[in-house]
């Protein structure tokens, strides 16, 4: 068994043998560790799905002509994973607020008579400022900035 003899002789051969071996072992361990970290980082970056709403062109959504919205009417805008309501509250005032309930993400309905949003799942109710009126929702609804230019309504999401 020449191999095993060689191995037992090695530490005696050089004085720096064990120290050098330990150093090389640590170095290769660190090297492989860096590789593993980099690999894990790359994998995590790859697994993170690109969000649909983050491109700059999508930030401002064109809703349509102001005249097409009747006063008191709510329109559900089917915008990606964050749909929202656009509601014309007066002749010049238009508001936009999220249509996703803050409780378990059911899509809200517009309640014409009470002028608010109501959840079909657990009866959570919101007023038109997005505040919780009653029910289980833990937070207020996000509201979005609305601008009107040349008779057209835009919402910044």
């Amino acid at each position: 068994m020449a191999g095993s003899e060689g191995r037992t002789e090695q530490p005696q051969g050089g004085e720096s043998g064990p120290g050098r071996r330990q150093f090389l072992r640590t170095l290769s361990g660190a090297f492989l560790g860096i590789w593993a970290l980099g690999g894990a980082g790359a994998l995590a970056a790859y697994m993170r799905a690109p969000e649909e709403d983050h491109s700059s062109t999508d930030r401002i959504v064109r809703i349509g002509k102001l005249d097409e919205l009747r006063i008191g009417e709510a329109r559900l805008v089917r915008h990606g994973v964050s749909p929202f309501f656009v509601i014309r509250t007066g002749s010049e005032s238009v508001i936009a607020l999220s249509a996703v309930c803050t409780h378990v993400r059911c899509i809200l309905d517009y309640d014409h008579e009470r002028r608010g949003l109501v959840c079909p799942c657990h009866d959570g109710r919101f007023d038109l400022n997005g505040n919780v009126v009653s029910g289980p929702p833990p937070r207020a609804l996000p509201t979005y900035e609305v601008s009107t230019r040349a008779g057209e309504v835009f919402v910044r999401v």
């Binding site: 089917r78 749909p83 249509a99 899509i107 959840c119 079909p120 799942c121």
Partner: peptide
């Protein structure tokens, strides 16, 4: 995706 049914 934009309409939640009741009773799910």
């Amino acid at each position: 995706p934009y309409q939640t049914p009741k009773g799910t």
